[in-house]
Design a protein around this nucleic acid. Sequence first.
DNA 1: TTTTCAATGTGTATTTTAAACACAATGATA
DNA 2: TATCATTGTGTTTAAAATACACATTGAAAA
Lengths: 257, 257
Amino acid sequence: MDQVTSAQHWMAQQMGLIIPHLSVDCVVFGFHENQLRVLLLRFKNTEVWALPGGRVYREEPVNTAAVRVLEQRTGLRGLYLQQFHTFGDPDRLHSSDFQAILAQQNIRIEASSLLFDRTISVGYYALVEFAQVSPAPDQLSDECRWWDIRDLPKLFFDHNEIVAVAVRTLRQRLSYEPVGLNLLPEKFTMPELQRLYETLLGQPLDRRNFQKRMLAYDFLQRLDERRTGGAFKAPYLYRFDRERYAAVLQGGGLAFG
Amino acid sequence: MDQVTSAQHWMAQQMGLIIPHLSVDCVVFGFHENQLRVLLLRFKNTEVWALPGGRVYREEPVNTAAVRVLEQRTGLRGLYLQQFHTFGDPDRLHSSDFQAILAQQNIRIEASSLLFDRTISVGYYALVEFAQVSPAPDQLSDECRWWDIRDLPKLFFDHNEIVAVAVRTLRQRLSYEPVGLNLLPEKFTMPELQRLYETLLGQPLDRRNFQKRMLAYDFLQRLDERRTGGAFKAPYLYRFDRERYAAVLQGGGLAFG
DNA sequence: TTTTCAATGTGTATTTTAAACACAATGATA
DNA sequence: TATCATTGTGTTTAAAATACACATTGAAAA
């Protein structure tokens, strides 16, 4: 089976299995070297970058589709994943862009006419531990890697807007939920946590007040261990105590920011 | 054309015009007699109540579909309307419920097989001025009226959950945006505003502190008029100054709650 | 070995914000 | 005209956020 027929066959098979006009797109956030990053895919034989996304199977919950896409792209299960917005404008797909890509995939336009149709996309964002992820391209892409959020290229279709909305949502949530902790490894230092918050909020924070407030929430557990090896004084390691966090939520309010 | 053929014809025509497997559902909030209310429809010849909703046309933005549905149901344009969540579980539609309804509509099951298919619904909530709304049933319903949020019947499919998520979202937003003002008439008194907040937050608030804080936000304009006619001392009328609100947002933060 | 130094760990004073609280004024009703 | 439930306003107190300073650490340099 040559490449063209193979691609056609794959796509034709997909058509019957999926819900038409619907897709999921995932904004995968990671934190590395004090910068917020997102995972992007580069389409085969092109310089076009896009969010990891995919179709929803006929009998599959939309959330599950997002989980599936993410597992394929990151190798991770059980990610922190949140639906944040659905993008439903008819002009969000520009078929000229799309045709260029499909041509490179050696896929016949007629065979994929349904893919040209208008698509409504449910947007999810995931928070992952950077070091745990093994970026893996899919059938349609050559490359999968992290991009600094401040330096994204022009993305496929409206994916720049999707990222922007995801970032805005993440910042808002940060004000009343410790979402940021999902971006750090299990053990982390207070300065690391602070730098994450500073990056997300886009402003410097007072070291002493930050620590005071974080500890006041009473869901961080200080370990006896310290982060050794780094230059200068070794900071303590902390762990996010999810059980205690649940207890704090039960017992009333919680306010970050 | 008898009723059966007419309904079949209408539905067949709809099939070609709409995007399959996709719908919008609207939670229309109103405030009356110190209670939060939602607009519900009762299906023809049944006691089944449901949210106003509808299909999305092939070339229509999803947001526009929601606006269109709302205009038909409330007679209002330019409503405060927010997308809040997309409901995409395959088992959210129970075809047994659905069949009972369709039978009452005298619609042949075969003719509407696509309608039985799994449907992903984009949820919107609208905030409207109660007195301005003229509830109007659609082709499939006999009745359209307000229901107290605390006393809803068992609704169609997963509409109870949709309402619950909408209420939760509304309460959260109230903490950092004066959404509540969209539920009041143009001119309102401070006690009226306070009762709205108390209802939405589900707790009593101190009258003097409430007024102090609201006025501190600096987007309420006190008029010389007073609400006369009521028993006892006549309270001042206020107006929400949207221009000043925009200015306040520009100039930095804003925190309700 | 000792010194250096950039970063961490901790505490207190100050300001700002939210919460608690009390009395005078009003205007329809009795 | 007396009543009274409600409105209008200010002050006092507590809590939370902010500003700020010095001792400690541990690798690296001298």
